[in-house]
Design a binder for these strands. Structure first.
Length: 267
DNA sequence: CGTATATGGATAC
DNA sequence: TATCCCTATACGT
């Protein structure tokens, strides 16, 4: 379930387990074996999240890069009486200490690179609302000068980093913006509000460990109450709008299914 | 058992 | 715009 919130949550959780320690790095599946060897046994100094990218800073000065893509997943297992459990399924990378193993399966990217690679990736990304001191200026500038649709622009990681298909649908819904509205037709105040909405949703996502967008603009909803998936979004993957009951419209935008409410988000 | 689907993105036209 | 890659899970037969 990888949008930006997942990545930042992983960086936070995995840091507690691995940072400052010598880490055994391996590739049970084999495809990462040559890279794994280069940092195996080194101390992990920091795990950094930027948009949907993860960077592992090793004391060898090399940097691990992981991008989960659509399918990538981590699994954590603890050491038992027989030590660490065998990897299950296709495990590209295993990061292990004496008491914990973190297994990565199905990533789009998993490499060990010189520092320039990280710099190049970050240079191509727009501002990430989850990073400290990030500002919406660059996003607003890009969007307001573009004739592309807002639904298209939000999926472009060089415009904003970390937004995926769920947050695209949900943030545009909350802001009442039709996904096909062009960037040039949005005024700066609207885009400020859109940034604030995205930022708030992503932060909530990091806390919850999943995407629950309902209740952000209402009062009195206990966020830690168990909310079933069917009530977690306003429009994403729904048949009818959670607010007004209108039939949700699906469009193909930027190669992905976009969802919007024709009544709450008029063209 | 098969098949469809998924919160992504690079690359080839 | 179309195609491909990566893996697990849900669901139908």
């Amino acid at each position: 379930m990888p949008e930006g919130h997942t990545i930042h949550r992983i960086a936070r959780d995995h840091s507690k387990l691995l940072v400052g320690r010598e880490v055994a790095v391996s590739s049970p599946q084999g495809r990462f074996a040559a890279d794994a060897e280069r940092v195996d046994g080194h101390v992990l100094e920091r795990i950094e999240a930027y948009g949907k990218h993860l960077f592992y800073h090793w004391d060898s000065r090399e940097i691990g890069h992981v991008h989960l893509g659509l399918f990538g997943k981590y699994r954590i297992s603890r050491s038992g009486d027989d030590g660490l459990p065998e990897p299950r399924g296709q495990v590209r990378m295993r990061l292990a200490t004496d008491d914990v193993a973190i297994d990565l399966a199905g990533p789009t990217a998993c490499t060990i690179d010189p520092p320039g690679v990280r710099r190049g990736i970050i240079a191509r990304l727009g501002p990430d609302p989850l990073r400290r001191r990030s500002k919406p200026d660059a996003m607003i500038e890009r969007v307001s000068r573009s004739r592309r649709g807002v639904g298209d622009l939000l999926m472009d990681q060089s415009v904003v980093a970390g937004v995926g298909n769920v947050y695209r649908a949900e943030s545009l819904f909350v802001c009442g913006i039709h996904p096909l509205r062009t960037g040039t037709d949005c005024d700066p105040a609207e885009l400020e509000a859109l940034w604030a909405t995205i930022s708030g949703m992503l932060r909530q996502g990091v806390k919850d460990g999943r995407i629950v967008t309902v209740g952000r603009d209402e009062s009195g909803v206990a966020r830690n109450r168990r909310i079933p998936r069917s009530e977690a979004t306003y429009v994403y993957k729904r048949e009818r709008c959670l607010r007004c009951g209108s039939e949700i419209v699906r469009l193909d935008i930027a190669n992905r299914t976009s969802y919007h409410c024709p009544l709450c988000q008029p063209r």
